[in-house]
Protein backbone atom coordinates (compact mmCIF):
# COMPACT_ATOMS: atom_id res chain seq x y z
CA UNK A 1 0.00 0.00 0.00
CA UNK A 2 1.45 3.33 -1.00
CA UNK A 3 1.86 6.31 1.25
CA UNK A 4 -0.90 8.16 -0.59
CA UNK A 5 -3.24 5.20 -0.04
CA UNK A 6 -2.48 5.31 3.67
CA UNK A 7 -3.43 8.98 3.75
CA UNK A 8 -6.50 8.25 1.71
CA UNK A 9 -5.38 10.48 -1.15
CA UNK A 10 -5.74 7.83 -3.81
CA UNK A 11 -9.05 6.57 -5.06
CA UNK A 12 -11.01 9.03 -2.97
CA UNK A 13 -14.64 9.56 -3.79
CA UNK A 14 -15.16 12.42 -6.15
CA UNK A 15 -18.17 14.65 -6.25
CA UNK A 16 -20.75 13.83 -8.83
CA UNK A 17 -21.20 16.98 -10.87
CA UNK A 18 -24.69 16.03 -11.81
CA UNK A 19 -25.96 15.67 -8.25
CA UNK A 20 -28.90 18.02 -7.93
CA UNK A 21 -29.06 20.40 -5.02
CA UNK A 22 -32.26 18.91 -3.63
CA UNK A 23 -30.55 15.57 -3.10
CA UNK A 24 -27.96 17.16 -0.91
CA UNK A 25 -28.17 16.07 2.74
CA UNK A 26 -27.88 19.66 3.87
CA UNK A 27 -30.79 20.85 1.83
CA UNK A 28 -33.62 22.27 3.85
CA UNK A 29 -31.57 22.92 6.96
CA UNK A 30 -30.82 26.60 6.55
CA UNK A 31 -29.03 25.65 3.37
CA UNK A 32 -30.52 26.46 0.02
CA UNK A 33 -29.75 25.36 -3.48
CA UNK A 34 -29.06 28.49 -5.43
CA UNK A 35 -28.76 30.08 -8.78
CA UNK A 36 -26.67 29.13 -11.72
CA UNK A 37 -23.63 26.91 -11.40
CA UNK A 38 -20.41 28.60 -10.44
CA UNK A 39 -17.06 27.06 -11.11
CA UNK A 40 -14.43 27.52 -8.44
CA UNK A 41 -10.95 28.75 -9.22
CA UNK A 42 -8.55 25.88 -9.92
CA UNK A 43 -11.14 23.77 -11.64
CA UNK A 44 -12.27 23.52 -15.23
CA UNK A 45 -15.34 25.44 -16.28
CA UNK A 46 -18.54 23.57 -15.62
CA UNK A 47 -22.03 24.90 -15.77
CA UNK A 48 -23.34 21.89 -13.90
CA UNK A 49 -21.78 22.58 -10.51
CA UNK A 50 -24.15 24.22 -8.11
CA UNK A 51 -23.30 26.27 -5.11
CA UNK A 52 -25.45 26.13 -2.02
CA UNK A 53 -25.99 29.25 0.01
CA UNK A 54 -25.95 29.01 3.74
CA UNK A 55 -26.99 31.60 6.26
CA UNK A 56 -24.05 31.84 8.58
CA UNK A 57 -24.42 33.28 12.04
CA UNK A 58 -20.78 32.48 12.60
CA UNK A 59 -19.76 34.73 9.74
CA UNK A 60 -22.00 37.48 11.04
CA UNK A 61 -20.37 37.25 14.47
CA UNK A 62 -16.94 37.08 12.87
CA UNK A 63 -17.60 40.30 10.96
CA UNK A 64 -19.06 41.93 14.03
CA UNK A 65 -15.80 41.29 15.82
CA UNK A 66 -13.93 42.94 12.97
CA UNK A 67 -16.23 45.92 12.74
CA UNK A 68 -14.43 49.18 13.41
CA UNK A 69 -11.08 47.60 12.76
CA UNK A 70 -10.21 49.85 9.85
CA UNK A 71 -7.45 48.40 7.73
CA UNK A 72 -6.85 44.92 8.98
CA UNK A 73 -5.15 41.78 7.74
CA UNK A 74 -7.03 38.60 6.98
CA UNK A 75 -5.67 35.14 6.36
CA UNK A 76 -7.90 32.84 4.31
CA UNK A 77 -6.85 29.21 4.44
CA UNK A 78 -9.19 28.22 1.64
CA UNK A 79 -8.92 28.68 -2.10
CA UNK A 80 -8.84 32.13 -3.67
CA UNK A 81 -12.30 33.38 -4.55
CA UNK A 82 -13.04 36.67 -6.20
CA UNK A 83 -16.12 37.20 -4.02
CA UNK A 84 -14.30 36.60 -0.74
CA UNK A 85 -11.35 38.72 -1.82
CA UNK A 86 -13.53 41.60 -2.98
CA UNK A 87 -15.71 41.40 0.12
CA UNK A 88 -12.82 41.91 2.48
CA UNK A 89 -10.71 44.20 0.30
CA UNK A 90 -13.64 46.57 -0.10
CA UNK A 91 -13.84 46.70 3.66
CA UNK A 92 -10.23 47.77 3.84
CA UNK A 93 -8.59 44.43 4.56
CA UNK A 94 -5.41 43.07 3.14
CA UNK A 95 -6.20 39.48 2.29
CA UNK A 96 -3.67 36.69 2.24
CA UNK A 97 -4.96 33.42 0.85
CA UNK A 98 -3.18 30.11 1.17
CA UNK A 99 -5.02 26.98 0.13
CA UNK A 100 -3.72 24.47 2.64
CA UNK A 101 -5.71 21.59 1.14
CA UNK A 102 -3.88 21.87 -2.15
CA UNK A 103 -0.57 22.50 -0.42
CA UNK A 104 -1.04 19.38 1.72
CA UNK A 105 -1.95 17.28 -1.28
CA UNK A 106 1.11 18.50 -3.20
CA UNK A 107 3.26 17.83 -0.16
CA UNK A 108 1.95 14.27 0.14
CA UNK A 109 2.71 13.64 -3.52
CA UNK A 110 6.27 14.80 -2.98
CA UNK A 111 6.55 12.60 0.10
CA UNK A 112 5.37 9.65 -1.95
CA UNK A 113 8.05 10.34 -4.55
CA UNK A 114 10.69 10.58 -1.83
CA UNK A 115 9.52 7.30 -0.36
CA UNK A 116 9.76 5.60 -3.70
CA UNK A 117 13.25 6.93 -4.22
CA UNK A 118 14.20 5.93 -0.68
CA UNK A 119 12.96 2.41 -1.25
CA UNK A 120 15.21 2.29 -4.32
CA UNK A 121 18.16 3.25 -2.13
CA UNK A 122 18.62 6.62 -3.80
CA UNK A 123 17.76 8.65 -0.73
CA UNK A 124 18.49 8.83 2.95
CA UNK A 125 15.83 6.90 4.86
CA UNK A 126 16.55 8.34 8.29
CA UNK A 127 14.00 11.12 7.77
CA UNK A 128 11.17 11.12 10.29
CA UNK A 129 8.21 9.49 8.55
CA UNK A 130 5.82 9.66 11.48
CA UNK A 131 2.76 11.95 11.20
CA UNK A 132 4.50 14.40 13.53
CA UNK A 133 7.59 14.43 11.33
CA UNK A 134 5.49 14.94 8.23
CA UNK A 135 3.59 17.78 9.88
CA UNK A 136 6.83 19.47 10.87
CA UNK A 137 8.23 19.17 7.35
CA UNK A 138 4.98 20.46 5.83
CA UNK A 139 5.02 23.54 8.00
CA UNK A 140 8.60 24.32 7.09
CA UNK A 141 7.35 25.48 3.71
CA UNK A 142 3.80 26.56 4.51
CA UNK A 143 2.08 29.04 6.81
CA UNK A 144 5.30 30.96 7.31
CA UNK A 145 4.13 34.30 8.69
CA UNK A 146 5.57 36.70 11.23
CA UNK A 147 4.09 36.60 14.70
CA UNK A 148 0.91 38.63 15.27
CA UNK A 149 0.54 39.59 11.63
CA UNK A 150 -3.18 38.90 11.17
CA UNK A 151 -6.33 40.26 12.72
CA UNK A 152 -8.57 37.52 11.42
CA UNK A 153 -8.31 34.01 10.05
CA UNK A 154 -10.81 32.04 7.98
CA UNK A 155 -10.01 28.42 8.67
CA UNK A 156 -13.21 26.92 7.25
CA UNK A 157 -13.47 23.15 7.88
CA UNK A 158 -9.81 22.52 7.20
CA UNK A 159 -9.00 20.81 10.49
CA UNK A 160 -11.48 17.98 9.93
CA UNK A 161 -9.53 16.93 6.85
CA UNK A 162 -6.02 16.96 8.23
CA UNK A 163 -4.18 14.43 10.33
CA UNK A 164 -4.78 15.32 13.99
CA UNK A 165 -1.06 15.89 14.58
CA UNK A 166 -0.93 18.34 11.67
CA UNK A 167 -4.16 19.99 12.77
CA UNK A 168 -2.66 20.61 16.22
CA UNK A 169 0.44 22.16 14.72
CA UNK A 170 -1.54 24.30 12.32
CA UNK A 171 -3.66 25.67 15.15
CA UNK A 172 -0.47 26.46 17.04
CA UNK A 173 1.13 28.21 14.04
CA UNK A 174 -2.04 30.14 13.25
CA UNK A 175 -2.35 31.19 16.88
CA UNK A 176 1.14 32.65 16.68
CA UNK A 177 0.25 34.57 13.54
CA UNK A 178 -2.90 36.10 15.05
CA UNK A 179 -2.68 39.32 17.01
CA UNK A 180 -4.02 39.43 20.55
CA UNK A 181 -7.72 40.13 20.17
CA UNK A 182 -7.74 38.55 16.72
CA UNK A 183 -10.54 36.26 15.56
CA UNK A 184 -10.41 32.80 14.03
CA UNK A 185 -13.44 31.39 12.24
CA UNK A 186 -13.47 27.61 11.92
CA UNK A 187 -16.05 25.00 11.07
CA UNK A 188 -16.35 21.45 12.30
CA UNK A 189 -18.59 18.70 11.07
CA UNK A 190 -20.55 16.94 13.78
CA UNK A 191 -20.59 13.81 11.65
CA UNK A 192 -18.65 12.66 8.65
CA UNK A 193 -19.67 14.91 5.75
CA UNK A 194 -21.09 13.22 2.68
CA UNK A 195 -19.71 15.79 0.30
CA UNK A 196 -16.58 17.91 0.15
CA UNK A 197 -17.23 21.63 -0.06
CA UNK A 198 -15.23 24.76 -0.56
CA UNK A 199 -16.59 27.91 1.01
CA UNK A 200 -16.75 31.52 0.01
CA UNK A 201 -18.32 34.65 1.36
CA UNK A 202 -21.38 35.84 -0.53
CA UNK A 203 -22.36 38.65 1.80
CA UNK A 204 -22.06 39.57 5.43
CA UNK A 205 -24.21 36.71 6.63
CA UNK A 206 -24.25 34.27 3.75
CA UNK A 207 -21.73 31.67 2.75
CA UNK A 208 -21.69 29.82 -0.52
CA UNK A 209 -20.79 26.16 -0.29
CA UNK A 210 -19.39 24.80 -3.50
CA UNK A 211 -19.31 21.05 -3.93
CA UNK A 212 -15.89 20.01 -5.15
CA UNK A 213 -13.90 16.91 -5.88
CA UNK A 214 -12.60 15.64 -2.57
CA UNK A 215 -9.00 16.74 -2.18
CA UNK A 216 -8.39 15.01 1.12
CA UNK A 217 -10.73 12.62 2.97
CA UNK A 218 -12.02 13.44 6.43
CA UNK A 219 -9.48 12.43 9.04
CA UNK A 220 -11.24 13.18 12.28
CA UNK A 221 -14.61 14.38 13.54
CA UNK A 222 -13.94 16.61 16.53
CA UNK A 223 -16.04 16.63 19.65
CA UNK A 224 -16.66 19.86 21.51
CA UNK A 225 -14.14 19.02 24.22
CA UNK A 226 -11.46 18.25 21.63
CA UNK A 227 -12.09 21.58 19.93
CA UNK A 228 -11.74 23.38 23.24
CA UNK A 229 -8.46 21.60 23.90
CA UNK A 230 -7.21 22.35 20.41
CA UNK A 231 -7.80 26.07 20.86
CA UNK A 232 -6.97 26.13 24.54
CA UNK A 233 -4.82 29.25 24.30
CA UNK A 234 -7.69 31.41 23.04
CA UNK A 235 -9.47 33.84 25.32
CA UNK A 236 -12.98 32.90 24.28
CA UNK A 237 -14.82 30.49 22.08
CA UNK A 238 -18.31 30.77 20.67
CA UNK A 239 -19.89 27.76 19.05
CA UNK A 240 -22.91 27.98 16.78
CA UNK A 241 -24.42 24.68 15.78
CA UNK A 242 -26.83 24.60 12.89
CA UNK A 243 -29.32 21.95 11.91
CA UNK A 244 -27.08 20.76 9.10
CA UNK A 245 -24.63 19.40 11.69
CA UNK A 246 -21.99 21.94 10.77
CA UNK A 247 -20.61 23.69 13.80
CA UNK A 248 -19.33 27.21 13.27
CA UNK A 249 -16.88 28.26 15.93
CA UNK A 250 -15.35 31.65 16.65
CA UNK A 251 -12.19 31.92 18.68
CA UNK A 252 -10.92 35.19 20.05
CA UNK A 253 -7.30 35.34 21.07
Amino acid sequence: MSFLHKLGLVGVRTFSRTAPANRHPLHGNGVHGAGPGITPVNSPRSAERQEITRTSRGLKEFLWNLDGLGRGALLDLGPVWQTTLSFFIERGFRVTAEDLFCAWKDFCREEEKHLQMASGGALDTTEDRTPEGRAARFLEGNLCYPAASFDAVLMWDLLDYLEPSLARRIVSVVSGAVRPGGVVFAMFHSRKPECFHRYRVADSMTLQMLPAAEIVPVQHVYQNREIQDLFGQYRSMKSLVSRDQLREVLFIK
Partner: peptide, 24 residues
Protein backbone atom coordinates in the same frame (compact mmCIF):
# COMPACT_ATOMS: atom_id res chain seq x y z
CA UNK B 1 -11.39 28.74 -14.55
CA UNK B 2 -8.17 30.47 -13.56
CA UNK B 3 -5.63 28.33 -11.74
CA UNK B 4 -3.82 29.79 -8.75
CA UNK B 5 -1.40 27.67 -6.79
CA UNK B 6 0.42 29.49 -4.06
CA UNK B 7 0.02 32.31 -1.63
CA UNK B 8 -1.98 35.36 -2.61
CA UNK B 9 -1.75 38.75 -0.94
CA UNK B 10 -4.16 41.43 -2.07
CA UNK B 11 -5.27 44.79 -0.72
CA UNK B 12 -3.65 47.69 1.01
CA UNK B 13 -1.15 46.87 3.74
CA UNK B 14 -2.74 46.59 7.16
CA UNK B 15 -2.21 49.23 9.82
CA UNK B 16 0.38 48.13 12.28
CA UNK B 17 0.68 48.58 15.99
CA UNK B 18 -2.83 49.78 16.80
CA UNK B 19 -5.26 47.93 19.00
CA UNK B 20 -7.26 46.25 16.32
CA UNK B 21 -10.45 45.87 18.27
CA UNK B 22 -10.53 49.03 20.33
CA UNK B 23 -13.18 50.60 18.16
CA UNK B 24 -15.43 47.55 17.97
Amino acid sequence: GAVLRGKVEAGKPAEKGGNAFAAA
